[in-house]
């Protein structure tokens, strides 16, 4: 029966990747980790204060699992803790719900709009698309035409259609539920940022010379 006794003492912790809190909030263990523990201590574990968000914290705080283990073993001497998953949690302090300003958004929108219009025109000029299109018109119909609109207008519409198809925004529900490349790219970028702050905002991850 000793095996059962050993198992009962173990506390399993799985840190969450990212937690959003308000300024001046108290972060308790339940917010930042999933816990499996013996029934008699699980409630007090869940409400254990890990961090108080203060003004100096700015917008990102990294809580290392070592700090959590330290706090728990302070209270429960000899507790056996098993950690699973991420070794730290990113606490993101949300100061105020920032709305997107409309003029700013319109500025960016028209920047992208005219930027891509100019870029595609330069591309067409660069690859001499006009002469290629006139040649295609001649090959297909046998006539010469300096304004082959019948080719050019479908081409222009297809251009936009191809971009939408690639990013799969219109047909997402109909064709399949896989994430679009853009969503994967957003995720990867966020992951890279998280990795950066995990290492650079965590004082424990560096040991420098002359570090007082």
């Amino acid at each position: 029966m000793w095996g059962v006794n050993v198992l009962e003492k173990t506390i399993y912790l799985r840190m969450r990747q990212r937690v959003q809190v308000r300024p001046d909030e108290v972060v308790i263990l339940k917010d930042m980790a999933q816990i499996i523990a013996p029934e008699n201590i699980v409630a007090s574990l869940e409400d254990m204060v890990i961090h108080r968000v203060s003004k100096q914290d700015q917008s990102i705080v990294i809580i290392d699992v070592m700090k959590v283990i330290g706090i728990i073993t302070n209270l429960y001497k000899g507790a056996e803790i098993q950690t699973i998953g991420p070794a730290q949690t990113i606490i993101e302090v949300i100061y105020k719900k920032k709305g997107v300003s409309v003029p700013f958004f319109l500025l960016i929108w028209f920047l992208l709009f005219f930027g891509s219009a100019l870029a595609i025109m330069n591309f067409h000029d660069d690859v001499s698309m006009r002469s290629v299109q006139e040649k295609i018109f001649t090959i297909i119909t046998g006539r010469h035409e300096s304004k082959p609109f019948l080719f050019q207008i479908p081409y222009s519409i297809g251009l936009g259609l191809g971009m939408i198809l690639f990013f799969n925004h219109v047909f997402r529900k109909r064709i399949n539920e896989e994430p679009s490349p853009l969503e994967v790219e957003m995720f990867n970028y966020q992951q890279d940022l998280d990795n950066y702050v995990i290492i650079n905002e965590n004082k424990e991850s560096f040991k420098r010379l002359h570090d007082h």
Partner: peptide, 19 residues
Amino acid sequence: MLLMAIVFGKIFGSIFQWV
């Protein structure tokens, strides 16, 4: 919305150029 800005920009630029 940003993506649509690029898409419409491309369509507009292309049609403008040819027409």
